[in-house]
Nucleic acid binder design. Structure first.
Lengths: 150, 150
DNA sequence: AGGAATCCCTACAGGAATGGTCGGATTTGT
DNA sequence: ACAAATCCGACCATTCCTGTAGGGATTCCT
């Protein structure tokens, strides 16, 4: 029951983009270096996020990536689902919360899976990239980093 | 972000044991057949559950498995963690909610992982096998099954 | 005592997912 | 034109998942 590095790396990259939103596109190698992620690997992830419509890319020199919407309009759930597929605890559940379990017509564990999914969704759909970017700024200020960038 | 079949099968088997608790041990092949699970595969899972202290086994003819505690004292979280390892969203987190992320000293996504874990734990640690067994009985009665067993 | 039932354990195996790498094609600012 | 970037598809090693196989140990029943 884990989020893979895809979701973790991709989300960290998205937070990075949120931090610098409105300042032009951010190049892949900058993000990768800043987050300590393999560049070609992150490239794949960004491709997925672009196809999902969450980021825009600018090709050519001085190009890079930027959020396609304000950070406050992008939820963590959207990012994670784009990268990891539907976040559902069991095969029994579809993305819509429907059941597709053929095995048993009536199975008590469904009750559990549904509650689990609701709990997860209520978290990932409530937190936006803006929330995480705010948190990140707070942490950076506290630890005294990044002040030389003014 | 899924529970594997290990957790799913194991939990279904545990619900089965909860349903028949107090009526002597339930043989592996009975559970496997009733739940539509490969018998040798389920055998492995039961071994894990036994080592975790969640079930007792009775060897020899007429043997089988039974819950080591009342169903109301066994949470879904205990079963899932025994079978799947710690239920944590990210590598950053340990079982205790501590952070072990070496990469970045301060990372905003930690906020998210912690909230996610709290949400998941609040579900799996609140639901017991007795809850699921009750639900199962309710479903079976409603669908008119099992009445010929009286 | 003997056989049958049943759990116990280890090893193996095919397939999918994970976590990347690599090389080249394409686009675009300078 | 050149360099900086994204884009794209193929490849690859490792691990995890989902079992299977086979034999050993224990206990009940007759």
């Amino acid at each position: 029951m884990r989020i893979s590095t895809r979701g973790e790396y991709g989300l960290r990259a998205m937070v990075e983009l949120a931090l610098y939103q409105g300042q032009g596109p951010l190049a892949l190698n900058v993000i990768a270096q800043r987050q300590g992620i393999s560049e070609p690997y992150l490239e794949q992830l960004m491709g997925t996020l672009r196809k999902a419509g969450l980021v825009n890319s600018v090709r050519g020199a001085q190009g890079g990536y930027e959020l396609s919407r304000p950070a406050a309009k992008v939820t963590v759930g959207q990012v994670l689902r784009a990268l990891e597929g539907p976040i559902i605890p069991s095969e029994c559940l579809t993305e819509d919360g429907e059941f597709v379990c053929v095995q048993m017509e009536e199975c008590a564990t469904r009750l559990l899976w549904r509650k689990l999914q609701e709990a997860i969704d209520s978290v990932v759909d409530a937190i936006t990239l803006a929330d995480l970017a705010d948190e990140q700024r707070r942490l950076q200020v506290r630890s005294g980093a990044l002040m030389y960038e003014i």
